[in-house]
């Protein structure tokens, strides 16, 4: 291509692709290049100062403003650190680390989505008895309730969360009985056969009392005058 139409190709520039670059001064150019080199993760202003050894923050501020006005860079909020907005070249989309991935919407944890998914997983597991993360992903997809196609890792995160809540358990398949259709040693998820009973201590007022450390037989807070006890023993 360069052999046949080299001269023509040189003449046909993309509008605005090179133009603004020409107008950039050295600092702007350096900053732009650094931001661009960071790709979809972007960079925080403080880090620009450190990496380029620019002591005067005003220079950076001015350059950033100028680059923003030329629509060469954009400011992206970071879900990990809300105060540290990141600068990113226009052509990149913020990475999963910055947006928080599928579980975040506009920088906030999407509780509704997570709850919905959890409920769906529990419902499916009640029917299926045992499932792998991949199997569950398929079930979620088939349900058609979501526009987004969840990855196996994302489904696994939801299932692991249910394990943490003791709603389900994670077991290794041994290829027997209910695990016959799963490969041996595959990570499977199973509904807990019975909801675990609450511990004995947490069933009495003292188990959940925020003032237990201030409670004494002859103290201001005492088991004899305790309001939690009185309420508990109301019949």
């Amino acid at each position: 291509m360069s052999g046949r139409g080299g001269a023509l190709a040189l003449k046909r520039k993309r509008p605005g692709s090179d133009g603004p670059m020409k107008e950039l001064d050295t600092d702007e150019n350096n900053i732009y290049n650094l931001i661009k080199s960071k790709g979809d993760t972007g960079i925080w202003k403080g880090d620009i100062r450190r990496e380029l050894n620019i002591t005067n923050t005003k220079i950076i501020d001015n350059c950033v403003k100028s680059l923003q006005s030329k629509q060469m860079i954009k400011e992206v909020s970071n879900v990990q650190a809300k105060g540290k907005k990141r600068l990113m070249a226009m052509e990149f989309e913020p990475s999963k680390e910055l947006t928080g991935g599928v579980w975040y919407r506009e920088g906030l944890l999407d509780d509704e989505l997570i709850k919905l998914l959890k409920r769906l997983c529990l419902k499916k597991l009640t029917k299926m008895k045992v499932a792998t993360a991949d199997g569950m992903r398929h079930e979620i997809k088939m349900s058609g309730g979501f526009n987004y196609d969840f990855t196996v890792e994302e489904v696994k995160e939801v299932l692991d969360n249910l394990v943490l809540e003791k709603e389900i358990t994670r077991v290794k398949s041994n290829g027997l009985r209910e695990f016959a259709m799963f490969p041996i040693n595959a990570d499977c998820y199973k509904l807990k056969s019975k909801q675990t009973e609450t511990g004995a201590f947490s069933l009495i007022p003292c188990g959940i009392c925020p003032r237990i450390n201030h409670c004494a037989p002859d103290g201001i807070i005492s088991p004899v005058s305790c309001v939690y006890y009185t309420k508990w023993l109301e019949f």
Binding site: N161, L164, E165, K166, T196, T198, G199, A200, F201, S202, G207, I208, P210
Partner: peptide, 21 residues
């Protein structure tokens, strides 16, 4: 399990998840 149930009742489900983690 006993301690976990105390955490769940005292601090809620989110603390329970963290504690279990």
């Amino acid at each position: 399990k006993e301690v976990e149930s105390i955490v769940k009742k005292r601090y809620g489900i989110e603390a329970f998840r963290m504690f279990r983690l």
